[in-house]
């Protein structure tokens, strides 16, 4: 709600004549390109790091050793000593 208020009353609160371009399209273009320029590098860097990490995980995951299925099963109560 605060964000909506900030967005809608900003023009009124800032009573300065040069604060707004008369062209609504131009104002919107600045907002759009700001969003593009801000998020594009973050997405690129984030994506690159995520991809590298995934690659690193794949390289680092320990080699799987074949373990006989019997070892993994519950062998039940220990046999009694004789």
């Amino acid at each position: 709600m605060g964000a909506v208020a900030v967005g809608s009353v900003a023009d009124l609160a800032r009573a300065c004549p040069s604060c707004a371009s008369p062209l609504e399209e131009n104002r919107q273009a600045f907002v759009d390109t700001t969003i593009l320029l801000t998020f594009l590098p973050l997405i690129m860097i984030g994506g690159f790091i995520w991809w590298l990490r995934r690659k690193a995980r794949q390289l680092e995951s320990p080699p799987q050793i074949a373990v006989p299925e019997t070892l993994l099963q519950d062998i039940g109560p220990l046999p009694k000593k004789q």
Partner: peptide, 14 residues
């Protein structure tokens, strides 16, 4: 290139 594209979008809007 995104800098150039941004400039173009703004130039177009003017």
């Amino acid at each position: 290139f995104s800098g150039l594209i941004s400039a173009f979008v703004i130039g177009k809007s003017n």
